[in-house]
Amino acid sequence: MNAPAYNFAYLNEQTKRMIRRAILKAIAVPGYQVPFASREMPMPYGWGTGGVQVTAAVLTPEDTLKVIDQGADDTTNAVSIRKFFVKTAGVATTERTEEASVIQTRHRIPEAPLTEEQILVFQVPIPEPLRFLEPRETETRTMHALEEYGVMHVKLYEDIAQYGEIATTYAYPAKVADRYVFDPSPIPKFDNPKLDNCPALQLFGAGREKRIYAVPPYTKVKSLDFEDHPFEVQSWSEPCALCGSCHSFLDEIVMDDKGTRMFVCSDSDFCARQRGER
């Protein structure tokens, strides 16, 4: 199969325009979930169909694409999506964060600081942060419209009551530009501070739920918390076993069946660079 059989980046131009309109609206109303006519993609829901459609809509032939899954460039999901765009768009790809102009990600924000020249595209499974407490879509929309966000704190209250601290560690809700509460997708809460005042444009696509939302560059993103239980990120007692970094998000890796474990950077590019520099 050869690329010319498809339009650039798989989707036809009409579809891309439709998605771009949704993206523009999302940028205009930071944190607001814009409905869009999500298409069937040649991959199952849950594999990042929302992110892929957003990437396809923003991609130009001059772009350099990086795709990561859980921080790594070499996992199945990342490899598949990268190959998909190589085949359908012929764009250059990279594993290095600072070389990429478009980064599609699942569950992480790269450790390296992003720039104004970059777009970060998140894959989102469940875009609605209120869903946990309110199953009715009509009701959650009204709650967003009226800024009725008290229930979000109910969830955090439950955490503290049960575990003595806010135990939510990923998909940690935050308020965008002092208005909409949003779900930053299942990134670890370690990454939440990176959302705030980020120079790069951050776009979120949920394919199955047919929603797009955005955090424009340099937008305030405040993680929800209590006055007496302020928002905190995770920390580890040991540095990365490979690169020695003390400031990156670490994955726990089980080494054998005797319970030997090691902690290593989840951002594979960052880890490799740190090792190279050392």
């Binding site: 407490l133 009725e148 008290g150 229930v151 704190h153 109910v154 969830k155 209250y157 439950e158 503290i160 009551a161 049960q162 918390d225 209590f226 006055e227 007496d228 239980h229």
Partner: peptide
């Protein structure tokens, strides 16, 4: 009631809804 959350959260919800953000007070 919100059957999915604890009794304390059920009582605290209205306080949080009107802007109370101090866990200790709510509790």
């Amino acid at each position: 009631l919100r059957m999915g959350v604890s009794a304390g959260a059920n009582v605290g919800e209205r306080m949080m809804a009107v802007g109370e953000r101090h866990y200790g007070h709510i509790r």
